[in-house]
Design a protein around this nucleic acid. Structure first.
Lengths: 348, 348
DNA sequence: CTGTTAGCGCCTTCAC
DNA sequence: GTGAAGGCGCTAACAG
């Protein structure tokens, strides 16, 4: 152990000055290959590693991204989504020499207080936000205070979602539900019900659009008929069970159901499992385990997008050869995971 | 934005020198109350916040704890466990002025490489490890290199688990399964089956002991009979379904089942749901949603224990008034969450 | 109790 | 291409 070697130690061993060592690390092309190799040999033999805090102090960059760990929701079953996103993000950040710093907050206001704390202390130089919502005060604060951030989720409720100050990445839930619905339609089924969250949730409304589009296009049902094929429920398993009962009571038997979440889908299965196909959303381990179809969010792509926007905005810059129409926002397509066999469960 | 104020700015406003400011922050009792208040007023009015990197450079402490995000397992459904632990840990760490830094690793060797990287760069000054296993090379490396760490999980496979070099916190799975089994026995049920993981997993073997103890004590069955009441399965839902079939084929009908995990329990429910009570382990959202009993790990207590050991080992020291027999290891008791109503699901 | 002095390890000028 | 200063913001010693 002992204390770590410093640039001076390396310089001493290599017979150069300290800044030459620094140059080898930060601007290798400035150093003659011969010297460079000597220095690198010294670095290697000493096991030298730059002291992160010293570098951060000097450069005034933390190379650290803060992310809030969402409060645990006891309701649904899809807790693993953030987990998987976090994993993808951390892995990619690592590769770019960025660190992920965690924090928690009791609510939006507290989260803003954390923003303040972490940015004032120069602990992080960017934030990643999840689960944005209508009139989110957090993004407002961040923009106002010149903080760099990207959200996983669109700024719902705003007419113009292309605010250049607000960088976001999101999954195209509408297309996900359109695909899910189309899949069932293509099996010859016509009366496909939709079970979603109460209106106003942005994400939920968007997904509903997908179902509606597909149904209008290919089911042959009228809008009046379609209205009877949807019901809303809070995101909890028992409510999903209740919802399918209400749905069939109000509109008669259905040929299949698409849901806004795997939690709701699971609830539906407890009532109608094996009788009709059910498609969920998020492709949670539960969907995989029990064998029902689900729309999978490409969290790795989302993470990649988040980092690109972050580093691009920081200094990098989106490379010209991967020109995109709107370089400040990314909508990535989800993927329908089809599991057409009978599910493992059904009503008791 | 502009740049943040520094100690000098505060000192200027308060009319004192820089280190008096520093003292107010780090050793308030050394400063006369009058001066202290003046300085604090200045701090407040300027919105001053110490620069984290500068402090870390100076003190040679990062006040940061590294934790690896476990690879996502597609198998079971219990991914949320680490998630919840991480949450509890982050929240408590925050309160003590400690930061949680994330990293990922492809395997134990890679993880050790990350240890090296993070500790060499003085990025973290302690690690928290999860899911320890038999002959874990990581703890060996950490001890050898004088790194401070605590594991969530015992050093399975070692005769003496009280190695003072290896600090750990764990949940007493044996007592958890004993309680679960006792609960079913107390309902007058006698033939309680056990479905666990293949022998050798430490955690799994420990939980099995709990079932065995309770059964020997109160079921009135002989060891030979008990042997027929247990089967092993990998931690996946369909294997749980298979396991209950094997169990009843080999030993006849059972009155209830206790499992090593909620994944297995869910599998059992797909076959025997509603017929016999099933108890899982981890109290995942799925257990709560579908309504089956499960053994809940007190993750908040585990997090508290981890931090106490970490800060105690660092400099703090366990306070004498909370004397414990073995201050370097903590075994916390889980809690059986009873859900005796009929589960939402059953065989299709 | 307060102020002075001296770095922590690094990188960014600027000369040579 | 390489070397010599200086300082990022903070705190640990010591003086006063």
């Amino acid at each position: 152990m002992g204390s770590q070697p410093t640039v001076s130690d390396v310089a001493g061993v290599a017979g150069v000055s300290r800044q030459t060592v620094s140059n080898v690390l930060n601007a290798p092309e400035l150093v003659r290959p011969e010297t460079r190799e000597r220095v690198q040999a010294a670095i290697h033999s000493l096991g030298y590693r730059p002291h992160a805090s010293a570098r951060r102090l000097r450069t005034q960059k933390s190379s650290t991204i803060g992310i809030r760990l969402d409060p645990i929701t006891q309701d649904g079953i899809s807790g693993s989504i953030l987990d998987r996103f976090l994993h993808a993000l951390t892995e990619r950040a690592d590769r770019q020499g960025l660190r992920m710093l965690l924090f928690t907050a009791a609510g939006p206001d507290d989260e803003i207080e954390q923003f303040r704390r972490l940015s004032d202390a120069a602990d992080v130089d960017a934030f990643v936000l999840t689960s944005t919502f209508h009139g989110d005060p957090r993004t407002e604060w961040l923009i106002e205070h010149g903080q760099s951030f990207v959200t996983f989720g669109r700024p719902w409720g705003i007419d113009d979602m292309t605010d250049p100050e607000h960088l976001w990445v999101d999954v195209d839930g509408r297309s996900g539900l359109r695909d899910a619905t189309a899949h069932l339609l293509s099996q010859g089924r016509r009366r496909i019900g939709f079970i979603g969250w109460p209106a106003g949730s942005g994400t939920g409304d968007d997904r509903r659009e997908g179902w509606l589009e597909a149904m209008r296009e290919r089911s042959g049902l009228t809008d009046d008929e379609l209205r009877l094929l949807e019901v809303a429920a809070e995101d909890r398993v028992p409510f999903g069970a209740d919802a399918i009962r209400r749905l069939e009571a109000q509109g008669g038997p259905v040929d299949g159901v698409v849901c806004t979440s795997d939690s709701l889908a699971l609830g539906v299965l407890t009532v109608a499992g094996g009788r009709i196909p059910v498609v969920g959303y998020d492709d949670t381990p539960v969907a995989a385990s029990l064998g029902f179809s689900s729309v999978a969010q490409p969290l790795d792509e989302v993470a990649a997008g988040v980092l690109e926007l972050l580093t691009g905005a920081h200094g990098g810059r989106v490379r010209p050869d991967e020109e995109v129409a709107d370089p400040r926002h990314r909508l990535v397509a989800p993927r329908l995971v089809v599991r057409d066999g009978p599910p493992l469960i059904g009503p008791r």
